[in-house]
Design a protein around this nucleic acid. Structure first.
Lengths: 199, 199
DNA sequence: CGAAAATTGAACTGATTAGTACAATTACTG
DNA sequence: CAGTAATTGTACTAATCAGTTCAATTTTCG
């Protein structure tokens, strides 16, 4: 790959953003490179100038999500420092799929579900993002525990995995039902359970 | 479609079973009809004799799951009449993905996640199965409630959706982590929460 | 048996796929 | 301004895709 000029960076970013949107909307395998190029008004030579393969752009889309999450610029608050923050973490996700008409689930969960068994890089990439979120939640819970504000029986790591899993399941259920109610009920009960460990 | 002879039924069932396995293993879009035919040692004319399209066999695979669930012949106990049954419902799912090396999530959730937004029939089909499971769990909880064995604040329908979502999320997380521990923790905490409504 | 119906094999089509080749053009830099 | 590097447009390939055609074979049943 050559050094990128400002113009090159813009083109590259436009391709990544278009791919990200299409992967979320319809899945990776349902999205052809030609469709990414047509939607982003880009030529094929440009695509293969910036990316080496379809697997490569999937990887770049996942790295994009990782940067979003790390930088805190995403639509979901991930810097969790209070019970209110944790509550917002859950409800931001439900609100996110509501805005999209309950026609999509989690963009990361979808890609992982579609490709993780056949593409180890995808599994690792998604794991990195999930791991970051896991650390964010468990860090909050561990902090509470050290302050004596969480029951000793509470396992922060296990409760973090529980949180991520319930969000993933809630978003999938919203998509299957095309209705936010089951997802809202799911995260509501997940929060009740988590807060039951507070003291 | 002509009337099916016994031989025809066997061929048809072989195709459905092969498609079901491949869809679960690698996804629907990653599975070509040619691969289904090669794996099941069947010719293409046979496939289009018994099924009208790829969408059609996806539908038939989902109907197969529905029959499995209704008949109680599946690997997961769905006739839930006690807390032990409900506990088994959760752990059967985790055990199911453990047996497959944590390389797959829920076969229905996977197909729904991949296709529900673009194929309404798929969404409806998966909803039928999820609805059956939902009724099974909420029926048990409603029974408890009428016997005064469940807190009045408990909402059986909401808790059923919570149960289905946590299972879906747990299985996805197991696949992403290639490890059963987060899924076990998830269903363990889901059960603790559900049982907190018992009295 | 013998005819009708069900089942199957093999070759084919047209569209779409990921990826390549290569020349043309634009932008940067000394 | 001249040369070099970055960027882009067009045309292409070989493989694979879902689906079709049609004749051959097997099974069923009076």
């Amino acid at each position: 790959m050559d050094q990128l000029s400002e113009k090159g960076n813009i083109t590259r970013a436009r391709i990544v953003e278009t791919a990200r949107e299409l992967f979320h909307k319809q899945g990776v395998r349902a999205t052809s490179i030609d469709q990414i190029l047509e939607t982003s008004s880009t030529g094929k030579s440009q695509f293969y100038h910036y990316f080496s393969s379809k697997d490569d752009i999937v990887h770049e889309v996942l790295r994009f999500y990782m940067r979003i999450v790390e930088s805190g610029r995403g639509p979901v608050l991930l810097n969790i420092e209070s019970w209110d923050d944790l509550e917002r973490f859950f409800y931001d996700h439900v609100e996110g799929v509501r805005m999209l008409g309950y026609e999509r689930s989690c963009p990361l969960g979808s890609i992982a579900n579609e490709l993780a068994s056949e593409n180890e890089q995808v599994r690792v990439d998604v794991n990195l993002v999930f791991g970051y979120i896991r650390n964010s939640i468990s860090g909050f819970l561990k902090g509470l525990k050290s302050e004596g504000k969480l029951k000793k029986s509470a396992d922060p790591d296990a409760l973090s995995d529980f949180s991520i899993a319930t969000v993933q399941g809630a978003l999938l259920l919203a998509k299957v039902r095309k209705d936010g109610t089951p997802a809202e009920n799911t995260v509501k009960h997940a929060l009740i359970h988590l807060k039951s460990f507070a003291k």
